[in-house]
Design a protein around this nucleic acid. Sequence first.
DNA 1: CGATCATATGACGACTAATTCATGTTTGAC
DNA 2: GTCAAACATGAATTAGTCGTCATATGATCG
Lengths: 200, 200
Amino acid sequence: MTARASQKPQPKTDRGERTRRKILDAAALAIGKRGFSATSISDITAAAGVGQGTFYIYFQSKEEVLREMVLQMGRDLRQHLTQAIAGTKNRLEAEREGLRAFIDFVRGNPGLYRIVEESQFVDEAIYRRHYMDFAATYRAALEAAEARGEIRKGSAEVRAWALMGMAVLLGQRYGIWDVATPLDDVVGPAVDLIGRGIRP
Amino acid sequence: MTARASQKPQPKTDRGERTRRKILDAAALAIGKRGFSATSISDITAAAGVGQGTFYIYFQSKEEVLREMVLQMGRDLRQHLTQAIAGTKNRLEAEREGLRAFIDFVRGNPGLYRIVEESQFVDEAIYRRHYMDFAATYRAALEAAEARGEIRKGSAEVRAWALMGMAVLLGQRYGIWDVATPLDDVVGPAVDLIGRGIRP
DNA sequence: CGATCATATGACGACTAATTCATGTTTGAC
DNA sequence: GTCAAACATGAATTAGTCGTCATATGATCG
């Protein structure tokens, strides 16, 4: 089901590096806007301003581009969240800032968000890994908080997935479909729910 | 973006009705297993045991079949949930039984679940309506519970989406990816989180 | 029975998209 | 400045899907 695939070799010159980037950027824009299957290779290469054959110098297929973009989005989001919760003093504060930062990220990168969700139907393994990785990080943070006595005892695994789920759907509702509602109006009630749900 | 489309007329005979059903069932199976774009019309008609042209007697396009299936899944799930929370005496019990029934439904109908999620990338309007409808129902239930004093005051809209999000991702994690973990091990911790999160 | 409407068929034309490749251009190490 | 390697190209090949239609079969009723 999933391509095992030997990656294409990295570009060896500056020009190659630039061309690869152009293709990747054009692909992110096009796929983010129109969706994966509605976007053809020639759409991408045309938008990138390169020949069709050039695509295959750097990528095996559209799927491989998607895979790379999901990884990229994981890194971007991780960084955004890490930065957002950097100054927080306890788990509850981290939940608040993390949720706010997540919805904020979705508002700022609706295309990337969409790409990750669609990857589920293109290469399930990469989508699953994306979530599993986040879940593992989240779980570790919850266990640490539990050890510090900041939150009540309870399954960190289930909690991690439950809280991620909240964030994902709130991100859809208030990050994509409705970008007018102030973040505080969303984050406030949600964090109230979370806070009472997990505190000692 | 969304087809406004005049529907095809309903079948006028028993035979027609049966043929239509065969196509719909075959489509649900095939699309649920392989995904929407990987499934061709001829895959569907071959699986249904009818000619390719027969498809177009009953449907305008693959998209229309998907739309119908999302609606169907909405009805099925609604019924499953309604039945599950029928005997409950308060909101918290309803949350428990509802969440259990939801994951149970996903385990029993992984294909249907997948179809709904994929509909997001085929006909966003129908997907959105699916969630909006559920959210409206959920919200009403929460508001009623709040009026009865069963739960604390708070934004029913945000809560509804947060709780749906929990269910959706727990459904993915424990309904699709891992069907071995006993439901109690999932529902217990989740309902503990919800219960303390919303009770007075 | 024969007439008529509904249903069924599958080959076919039109089209779209993926991928290759022979040919040409650019780069940068020497 | 030379030259081999890296890169770029787009037309041609390949593969497959959609949706139509002329034709055929099934069912129903007077």
